[in-house]
């Protein structure tokens, strides 16, 4: 998936993370985010990635990465193994998003999660006007070949957190590039945001 705005997301994630934190990037891809955070914040980083070619790229960058599946392999990490876990644009591709989120807040003190927001007005319009599953630059797969299994809206994500043992600590306004404290659902965020990013922890 062409990832929204890498530079913007990297820099905002870096702002949320204290220097020298111990971090796992779940679905770390080629390790670019970890590499960025190592250089910028001197973090101690680990990656989990399903694609072996990407693991090789991580290793060549000097980043430790384990070939594995977020749905299966997170259970192998003890509680509070990390200060932060990061899951960028991967939640929608997991088989059991609820379980994955619960695992993230178990293995780390805090988790940063971002995902494409299906409540975004352009996606709503696309489905309304075209009557077809939305395909855009950000969501570039046709419905029959997409690796994405569980799309949600920002509302859905918040509802899931409330229904489980997960506390939303911060929300990120990716448009304005600011980190804000979370109080309530805001309809306009669900309507105007192409993606959602939250800092969560265990209640």
């Amino acid at each position: 998936m062409s990832l929204f705005n890498t530079d913007r997301d990297f820099s905002i994630i870096s702002k949320m993370i204290p220097s020298r934190s111990k971090i796992i990037d779940v679905g770390c891809g080629d390790g670019s985010l970890l590499d960025y955070l190592i250089k910028k914040k001197n973090i101690d980083g680990r990656g989990l990635e399903i694609d072996q070619d990407k693991i090789r790229e991580c290793l060549a960058k000097g980043i430790s990465a384990i070939q594995g599946d977020a749905d299966i392999d997170l259970i192998d990490y003890p509680d509070k193994s990390f200060d932060y876990s990061i899951l960028t644009y991967t939640l929608q591709a997991t088989k059991r998003p609820k379980k994955v989120l619960e695992e993230l807040v178990r293995i780390s003190n805090k988790a940063i999660v971002s995902f494409p927001n299906f409540g975004y007005w352009k996606i709503r319009m696309s489905l309304l006007l075209n009557g077809k599953m939305p395909v855009s630059n950000e969501l570039s797969y046709s419905w029959h070949e997409t690796p994405n299994l569980h799309f949600c809206t920002i509302y859905d994500f918040i509802d899931l957190c409330e229904a489980t043992d997960i506390k939303i600590e911060k929300k990120v306004n990716l448009k304005k590039n600011v980190i804000q404290s979370y109080n309530n659902k805001e309809w306009f965020e669900n309507f105007f945001s192409g993606s959602g990013m939250f800092l969560i922890s265990k209640k």
Partner: peptide, 9 residues
């Protein structure tokens, strides 16, 4: 992993 080592697989 339980020891938090720099491990790749």
């Amino acid at each position: 992993n339980a020891l938090g080592l720099n491990v790749s697989f």
